[in-house]
């Protein structure tokens, strides 16, 4: 199986030289295969968002190396990073980050417009992906006219339309009720299973995590343990709850420098 993401010994230290520095990620390594649906879990402040942002090339790392689809991101300049993001990555943000001044159609089409794709292809793409996500009849609306779940599905459609190598999601269910969250995760799981989209998702929610094919637990900036599903989703859910309880009970091992 092909490795699409390789993070080796990455660290992230916040704070400038001289001021009190804080290391959010320390010496962390993991790799991800094509078609995996990885969940990242951990207590608040453990460095999940920091890790995701580094993989997303939004935040430079202090040391270590990240390779996505065989390309090392640390050597690229700002424009190359921009291009890399628009070509290879899809994002779903916790607060949707839809552009309110554009219609749903325009929002979804944006990644393709940016690559100057032909209009016919854009239209075909938008209709296809919006049909999959069940928002085909909302295309001419503005985000302000949508419900939270519809906005989130629009955001997913936008993150998928250019068929990225890797889909990154930071707490995609954070702003949704349990009903909408379940629908969303079903969608993500379907996409992962049927269209082989690789997904890296940060989540707090054990139920959301139970949809993943592998879970990474992070604590104090380090990889604490890995978990693979065995049995049904409900059994996996229970297992996750147990691990989280265990993580909380153990004394804090993080050190401030």
């Amino acid at each position: 199986m092909k490795t699409i993401l390789e993070a080796s010994n990455i660290s992230k230290t916040y704070g400038k030289k001289g001021t009190a520095a804080y290391t959010a990620i320390r010496d962390l390594s993991f790799s991800m295969n094509e078609g995996e649906f990885i969940g990242i879990m951990g207590p608040s402040g453990s460095g999940k968002t920091t890790l995701l942002n580094m993989v997303a090339t939004l935040d430079p790392m202090t040391s270590g190396e990240i390779t996505i689809d065989g390309i090392s991101v640390s050597a690229m300049n700002e424009d190359q990073l921009s291009d890399f993001r628009s070509q290879n990555l899809g994002f779903i943000f916790q607060d949707f980050n839809l552009l309110e001044n554009m219609t749903v159609f325009e929002n979804i089409a944006l990644p393709l417009s940016l690559r100057n794709t032909k209009l016919e292809k854009i239209q075909a793409g938008v209709h296809q992906v919006s049909a999959i996500l069940g928002i085909g009849d909302l295309l001419e609306k503005y985000p302000a006219e949508l419900s939270g779940g519809q906005k989130q599905r629009t955001a997913i459609a936008r993150s998928l339309i250019h068929e990225p190598t890797l889909l990154l999601a930071d707490e995609p269910t954070g702003a949704l009720d349990s009903q909408n969250a379940a629908t969303l995760l079903d969608t993500l799981a379907d996409l992962n299973a049927e269209r082989k989209v690789s997904i890296l998702m940060v989540t707090h929610d054990p139920r959301s995590a139970s949809y993943c094919s592998r879970l990474l637990f992070i604590k104090d900036g380090k990889l604490d343990r890995e978990l693979f599903p065995a049995g049904t989703r409900e059994e996996f859910h229970q297992e996750i709850l147990a691990v989280l309880g265990d993580l909380d009970r153990r004394p804090v091992a993080g050190v401030r420098i």
């Binding site: 997303a56 993001r85 628009s86 990555l89 994002f91 943000f93």
Partner: peptide, 12 residues
């Protein structure tokens, strides 16, 4: 909005 665009990979 501009932050979102930057994240989506729009060049400066």
């Amino acid at each position: 909005r501009y932050d979102s665009l930057r994240k989506l990979g729009v060049r400066r």
